[in-house]
Simulated assay, not measured.
Amino acid sequence: MTSFPSRYVALGDSFTEGVGDTDDRFPNGLRGWSERVAEQLAIGNPDFRYANLAIRGRLLGPIVDEQLGPALALKPDLVTIYAGGNDMMRPKLDLDAVVARYDTAIAALTESGARVVMFTAYDTGWSAFFGKLRGRMAIYNELVREVADRHGATIVDFWRFAEYQDLRMWDFDRLHMSPAGHQNMAAHVLDAIGVGHTLNAPDLGPVPAQSKIEARREDRQWTREFLVPWLARRVKGVSSGDGVSAKRPELAPAFQA
C-alpha cells in the first residue's frame, strides 16, 4: 500500500513553477501541475503541507545552489525536481558536467530519506525550432535515467508522452505547458508515485484541421511575439526569472481550487 506524503517540496524552473497555467488565485499568478499534485495529496490528509521553490528561467546550477539547501531544511518526504531544461537551450553546454551536478543533488535528496521524482526532457522532434535540440535532449535523458537508477529516484518519462504532440497541450510560446498540459502532467506524476487521484486526462477532442496558410500565419505570429524577444533575452543575458521569488517558500496547506 502506498503511503501518502505529508511534506511535499517542488524544485526546479518554469516547468515546476507553473508557467503557462495562469491563475490569479495562486502565488505568482500560476497554478501548474505541482499545485494540482499537492491538492490531490491533501485530500483526506489534514497534516499535508506543500512548498514550491521553483523559479522560471533557472539553470541547473542555480537550482541546486538556491533551492537544494532550503528544500532539505524543510525535511520533505516527497520531492519533485526538474532541472536542466534551460541549460539545454544554451549554445555551449558541458552536458556531463551539468548531469554530474544533478547527480550530487539527487544523492543529497535521496539520502535525506525523501522520495525523489525526476523528469526526462520532452521530445521536441516535431518542432521546427526546438527540434534542433533533440539529440542533445536524448543524451541528457539517458544520463538522467542513469542518475535515477543510481539513487532509486522515480522517473516521470516526459519523453514518451505522445499526447504532447498536440499543440493544445502547450501555451502560445510552445515552450510551456497549457492548463491542459499541466493537468495531464499532474496525473502522470500521481500515477508514477502510485497515489490514486480524481484527475482526468484532458478531453480536447479531435485536433482541429488547419490549412498551410493558417499554420504559416501562426508560425509568423509565434516568431514575432515569442521567439524574437526570447532570443533577445538570451543575447542580453536577461532571465525571465530575474526579480521573481519562489511562489511557496515555506511548507503550508495546499490550496483547494
Rank of each mutant, 00 (worst) to 15 (best):
G125P: 01
E146K: 14
G243Y: 05
A187T: 03
F172V: 07
F158H: 11
I139K: 14
R134E: 08
P249Q: 05
L227R: 12
P179G: 08
E39A: 13
R217C: 10
P46Q: 09
A51G: 08
F26Y: 15
H188K: 14
T223F: 15
S112N: 06
K247V: 08
K75A: 15
E66G: 00
T16M: 02
T22H: 14
A215I: 13
L95W: 06
R217D: 11
P229I: 07
G181F: 03
A162I: 10
T22L: 14
A38M: 04
A71R: 00
F255C: 00
P46R: 10
N45E: 09
G44E: 01
N52W: 02
D171G: 09
W33T: 01
K212I: 12
L133H: 10
R31L: 06
M137L: 15
F158A: 10
G29D: 02
M137A: 11
L11R: 05
G12K: 01
E214V: 11
Y50C: 05
T16C: 06
A38H: 02
D123F: 01
S112C: 04
T120Q: 07
I81K: 04
Q183V: 10
D103N: 13
L68I: 13
W230K: 07
D191Y: 03
D242Q: 14
P76H: 03
A73L: 09
S127Y: 10
G29L: 08
R7H: 04
R220G: 05
R31C: 06
S3K: 13
V189G: 02
Y122Q: 06
A100Q: 13
